[in-house]
């Protein structure tokens, strides 16, 4: 069972376009009111698989014992030099979707706050997972989380990624015709793992891990095909949040 910590309201405020501003007390109170029902509606869970990177070229990545091929320059760049790739999927569960539908009928202010807070919650599940992963693989350095739809990694691999993880069976996560994840508050991602005990890799690693460089190179408004900033590893740095 995955447990959810108190929701990071600063993160939620960021998704709501507050930037550096603090929400006023009325809004903060409303957020507090939203937290209970949201926590109750959340049944967070995740699953993952760790695969050897069999081949990694500039255009595509092949993982061993797995029918999923990752295509695009960006994923090639991300996983270059990585021994392993982690396929990861997480969801807050369908209860949050039901809560959101109800709030959108009865209380739009709470609906948008809950939406942003749910985004912060799934983000937190992802971060916690990456921390666990770090403990599990102390000698491996993780790349950033990279999701289908970022840069040129096709969103269309979403279904195959879930099949590979049996995510439907394990955590109830599915895709729609349009490759959207259902339940809605869900994330899938690829994380590269690189052995840092290899001395000669270290300096090169430093450059590669500078995720700001990757973001600035790959993302500008209009390029990103993510549905929302919530749960996106770029959220804090993305242009979209600059002027919302």
């Amino acid at each position: 069972m995955v447990t959810l910590k108190p929701i990071n309201k600063k993160e939620a405020a960021l998704y709501l376009g507050y930037g550096k501003n603090e929400p006023d007390p009325v809004i903060l109170n409303l957020m507090d009111e939203c937290e209970g029902p949201l926590q109750e509606a959340c049944h967070p869970s995740f699953c993952y698989g760790i695969f050897d990177v069999q081949m990694c070229s500039e255009e595509r990545v092949v993982l061993s014992e797995c029918d999923l091929e990752l295509t695009g320059k960006d994923i090639g760049k991300l996983l270059s030099g990585c021994e392993k790739a982690v396929l990861f999927a997480a969801t807050l569960g369908s209860g949050v979707d039901t809560l959101m539908r109800k709030l959108q009928v009865g209380n739009m202010p709470k609906a948008i706050l809950t939406d942003a807070m749910a985004g912060a919650a799934i983000e937190q599940i992802c971060n916690d997972f990456q921390e666990e992963l770090a403990v599990q693989f102390p000698n491996m350095k993780q790349t950033m989380r990279y999701s289908p739809g970022y840069g040129d990694l096709p969103l269309a691999i979403q279904g195959k990624l879930l099949e590979t993880l049996s995510a439907g069976k394990r955590i109830g996560l599915n895709v729609t015709e349009g490759n959207m994840l259902t339940p809605l508050k869900s994330v899938t991602a690829v994380i590269g793992l690189r052995d840092i005990t290899k001395e000669e890799e270290r300096s090169r690693l430093k450059d590669m891990m500078d995720s700001d460089a990757v973001i600035n190179a790959e993302l500008s408004v209009g390029d990103c095909s993510r549905e929302a900033c919530a749960g996106c590893a770029f959220a804090a740095k993305c242009h979209k949040n600059d002027n919302r």
Partner: peptide
């Protein structure tokens, strides 16, 4: 910000 805008909108609603 958006939440306040929506709060006012819900009063009008």
């Amino acid at each position: 910000f958006l939440p306040q805008l929506m709060l006012s909108a819900s009063v009008v609603q």
